[in-house]
Amino acid sequence: HGLPQKRTFPLGGLVENKVVSLLLVAEPESIFAMPDPTVPDSDIKALTTLCDLADRELVVNIGWAKHIPGFSLLSLADQMSLLQSGWMEILILRVVFRSLALEDKLVYAEDYIMDEEQSKLAGVLDLNNTILQLVKKYKTMRIDKEEFVVLKAISLANSDSMQIEDVEAVQSLQDVLHGALQDYESAQHTEDPRRAGKLIMTLPLLRQTAARAVQHFCSIKQEGRVPMHKLFLELLEAR
């Protein structure tokens, strides 16, 4: 019929796009927050739960980063630099994606969903409202899992660390991921030729939100009332 065969097959672009497939496979399972049922609800309990969850998420996400095609080819120092500047964006994007199905609630974990009241109690209402603004953007765009996994990898590769040794190698990682997003969009979202750009344009709000989150948890750290695990502390101190 003169129709381009590959493009009309719904999964055509997906099968062709190796990077997207690898990222989908690498995507870690969600972990549980497991708030201590014997401790009464309080701001300290909520923050302790969030910090503990973040620490465990970080371990999983460092493992995930190693599965981003090309990431392990960077020097160890550059891998560290990217993670030290991009870790909070990755954690937030995961919360955002988990929260897409809900209204005004953030799914920090399947067993730890924060609504406005809980956010107030934990003293993170402003922060959670900014994260909800991101949720709203991606809801409006109807972001899919493929786009989410590529965008998350892009946010790490594009974390603008000042310490990068091999700038060209990081640039080529960015190019591979950006190319994967563009290929995916031109195969799967032919109705909107600007969709890849629209997704990239959500990253400034993500950067801003992550900076705010790091700042918030740094001041909590300074108050010293909330126990924090070593990896989380290490990365909070890396800014």
């Binding site: 870690p28 493992g63 160890l76 891998q79 560290m80 993670l83 290490e234």
Partner: peptide, 20 residues
Amino acid sequence: KEKHKILHRLLQNSTSPVDL
């Protein structure tokens, strides 16, 4: 770099949680 011992160790470790 000394300050980032855990990150360093996790990146060097060949088995990531995703593999397990």
